[in-house]
Amino acid sequence: MTAVLRTKNLLKNFGAVKAADNLNITLESDTTVGLIGSNGAGKTTFLNMVTGYLTPDHGTIYFENENITGKSPRDITRRGVYRSFQIPQVFNTMTVKENLEISVSIGMNQPNYTKHIDETVNNESSIIKNSLQKFKLEEYQEKVASQLPEGTRKLLDISMALVMKPKLLLLDEPTSGVSAEEKFNIMDMVMNAVRSEKIAVLFVEHDMEIIKRYTDRTLAFFNGRVIADGLTNEVLNQENVIENILGSSI
């Protein structure tokens, strides 16, 4: 297995708060990794640095052995790193189908912008159909995104990232704000889609049931540091993880 993502000595401070304190993390292709930590541990900051939304104060980020530190979200996205958001970032005034069409038109036609969008959409209609099917979005396809239930918005958000054929997919709390009955459903759909494409996945999660069920490896953050990294079962039983992160929740 080769390393898709590698970070070296990442540092990021917000005033006196250390959001990232010497992070050295390697992610292999074709693995699913969970990222846990209490609020303010620096989980989203890490995602934001990897995707270029924030620039680290110090340190380097390599994607497929290329230094991508300080590049813009757009440049990093184009290299194959896609993400979803804690608060779904979808096109709220457009329908589910249009959301996917826009994604496809950007993803499949980088150089060919002048092509009629219908042509693009027709050419790639199988991709759109496929994602609508995989994420059970068919019944919503003509609905405007702002009117969807939260779980469906999350799915749309993730499906927009997956349409782009990522090599690395970063999910920020894919099940937050989703009802307990729905959460396994959502994760099943996402993980099935990901596994069939052999994509490396890192997801931030508060829900330990989700972590146990879907990840092989887990990273635990505390105050911007990695305090545990290893097989999920071992990490979740590690004393400092129980003390600092899981606390009374288990």
Binding site: T77, V90, M94, I102, I106, G107, Q110, M160
Partner: peptide, 10 residues
């Protein structure tokens, strides 16, 4: 609609 998403689609 959403600039951030456009950038994050590349």
């Amino acid at each position: 609609d959403n600039e951030l998403r456009v950038e994050y689609l590349g």
